[in-house]
């Protein structure tokens, strides 16, 4: 137990020093997790001292934040899964943690960037409507999702600077990648051709070279002399009669009718 305490203090020191010593934290965290398992606190069962649980929760929270800072998403995923026990099952007995909502918000953003919208909503459902509307850490991802679904991409773009916590910025880049691809697929469907300058604005590219590279990736025809991008027009969709299906359906009806008569 004393050893655990030393490790814990070491972790706090490493985490609070500016800038945090990520490598040291990761090493200490691994040791701490082993210690927590031995003390039966990582996945608490039965009666445990509340004070210990608070410490265990803090260790996991720091772990989650450290893994975001060191850009290790799978590790964040694991920490969050372990933290859920503390957030849901012990929500009544433990004092609320000030890191709970930032971490929940981070998890929501993570789901959003991975385009796991169904999981996003399932997770959201477990939160109070009040929290969703008022807590800045939660309402940020909620608004992002709403704008994404509506198609108000410029709002998402503008909101990237308004992240409520430093860690949120980590996800911004991948989110912007998602948005660009979304916008690009919309443009392919909605425009016949687009001037290069406007395309750059729509796709939030500060200069043309980025746009040209992106256009190449998506296989757009760029007409440099006229300064436009031409999108492939889809040919008239051929209407095919699903013969196989119609035949099998008719046969099935015949068989059923036979049975009835």
């Amino acid at each position: 137990m004393t050893q655990l305490k030393d490790l814990y203090e070491e972790l706090i020191r490493g985490f609070n020093s500016k800038p945090s010593d990520l490598n040291k934290c990761t090493v200490t965290l691994n040791k701490l997790k082993l210690g927590l398992i031995e003390a039966g606190l990582l996945l608490p069962k039965g009666d445990v001292i509340l004070g210990d649980l608070v410490v265990a929760r803090e260790v996991l929270e720091i772990g989650a934040i450290v893994s975001i800072r060191s850009r290790d998403i799978p590790s964040f995923d694991r920490y969050f899964a372990q933290l859920q026990t503390f957030y849901t099952d012990y929500s009544e007995s433990l004092p609320p943690s000030k890191r709970e909502y930032p971490i929940r918000g981070l998890n929501l953003i993570r789901l959003l960037t991975q385009n796991r919208i169904a999981d996003f909503h399932t997770t959201l459902e477990s939160l109070d409507a009040d929290v969703i509307a008022k807590n800045p850490f939660i309402s940020h991802p909620v608004n992002l999702e709403r704008w994404l679904m509506e198609g108000s991409y410029s709002k998402v773009w503008n909101a990237r600077e308004e992240a409520p916590a430093e860690e949120y910025k980590f996800f911004v880049d991948s989110l912007m990648g998602t948005i660009r691809n979304e916008i690009a697929s919309c443009e392919e469907a909605a425009y016949e051709s687009l001037p290069l300058k406007d395309a750059a604005t729509l796709l939030f590219f500060p200069n043309q070279s980025g746009l040209l590279l992106f256009a190449k990736e998506r296989g757009w025809q760029v007409d440099i002399s006229a300064g436009t991008i031409n999108f492939k027009t889809k040919g008239e969709e051929k209407m095919e009669i699903p013969k196989q299906r119609l035949i099998s359906a008719s046969l099935a009806y015949a068989r059923e009718l036979e049975q009835i008569v």
């Binding site: 509506e150 198609g151 979304e182 697929s185 919309c186 392919e188 469907a189 909605a190 425009y191 687009l194």
Partner: peptide
């Protein structure tokens, strides 16, 4: 916003149409 939203609507097949930018 309107331009993006209309573009998305066209992509999602809600409406048939084109935007002339």
């Amino acid at each position: 916003d309107a331009e993006y939203i209309v573009g998305k609507a066209i992509r999602d097949g809600v409406i048939e149409g084109r935007i002339v930018h």
